[in-house]
Computed example of a mutant assay.
Amino acid sequence: MEKNAKIYIAGHRGMVGSAIYRKLQKEGYNNLIVKTSAELDLRDQLAVTDFFNRELPEYVFLAAAKVGGIIANNTYRADFLYENLCIQNNVIHEAYKTGVKKLMFLGSSCIYPKLAPQPLKEEYLLTGPLEETNEPYAIAKIAGIKMADAYRAQYNCDFISVMPTNLYGYNDNYHPQNSHVLPALIRKFHEAKVSCSNEVNIWGSGTPMREFLFADDLAEACYFLMQNYSEAGLINIGTGEDLTIKDLALLIKKVVGFEGALTFDSSKPDGTPRKLMDVSKLHELGWKHKVELEEGIKLAYADFLAKHS
């Protein structure tokens, strides 16, 4: 990507989009186009058409999506399916119509079958049933991957799809019900520490295994792949390392400085038993994560304290 190229970052105020925005600024890109959801509703086909015709971006990072944790995904099933399909349909189609040089579509590791072999290889897509609680979101993301591939096959568009593992970092969502597990635990432990609670109760059994990538590392990978990768299908972005939710909780407890006990509520859903990315394809291209989990949690907690306490 040329330094003066016009680059549109969809979803620049979210955790992923803001990390990509910071990375591009750091690399000296000064022609970045961003719009808040109030300025441009990506679900509105006419508004997106007008925007692309007016701005004519050369490169697009499609990081805008309706996102949330297990409860949000399961509660707002129609919203997650409809709104994500609208966003990606509009942006991908207009990118084709206006001759965008390259587009990156960001998906999620929940696209893989619930009981797929571990670690998750790219070719496991569509080989089995999805996790029920976030099936609508996953189906929307799978449609986005297939859409990027279809425009590549039919119109020779350089559209690529990347699948990040679980993310955390600056500008994360700490909502009590709608957040993902790592930020939710940061909030829980912080509030327990402040209120001098004796214990923190954690949803689920604590046994599922999860992998976590710092969002600024994801931005580094996205920047690297925009320059060095162009093929159909998808590529995983992750660390290739995972741990149990219990061990994650113990790590967050240590970083936050909470002194009490942990209890686990097995009546709450666990989700997929394990979700570890096979990142050998990414490693072979020459990219590897830099921020280890404890260091990243310290950075995220400092960000949480600055914005929420």
Rank of each mutant, 00 (worst) to 15 (best):
N4S: 06
N4Q: 07
G14W: 14
M15P: 11
V16A: 15
I20H: 01
R22T: 10
K23H: 06
L24M: 07
Q25K: 15
K26G: 08
G28D: 09
Y29W: 07
L32I: 15
V34W: 09
T36F: 07
D44K: 02
D44V: 03
D44H: 02
D50T: 13
F52Q: 07
R54Q: 14
E55S: 08
A65M: 13
A65P: 07
N73K: 13
N74I: 04
T75P: 01
T75I: 08
Y76H: 15
R77Y: 09
Y82N: 15
L85A: 05
Q88C: 12
V91D: 02
H93W: 14
G99I: 11
V100I: 08
K102Y: 06
F105N: 12
G107A: 11
S109D: 12
C110V: 08
P113V: 00
L115Q: 05
Q118K: 03
T127R: 15
P129C: 03
E131V: 01
I139V: 15
A143F: 14
N156R: 12
F159E: 08
M163W: 04
N166Q: 09
N166V: 06
N171K: 15
N173G: 09
I186D: 05
I186Q: 03
R187L: 06
H190F: 14
A192M: 10
V194M: 07
C196A: 14
S197R: 08
N198K: 04
E199A: 12
N201Q: 04
N201M: 02
I202M: 00
T207S: 11
L213S: 03
A221T: 03
A221L: 01
T239V: 10
D242H: 12
L251K: 14
E259N: 13
S267G: 05
P269N: 02
K275T: 13
K275F: 11
V279Q: 11
V279N: 04
S280I: 01
H283A: 06
W287E: 08
V291W: 10
E292P: 02
G296C: 05
A302M: 14
A306F: 01
A306S: 04
H308F: 10
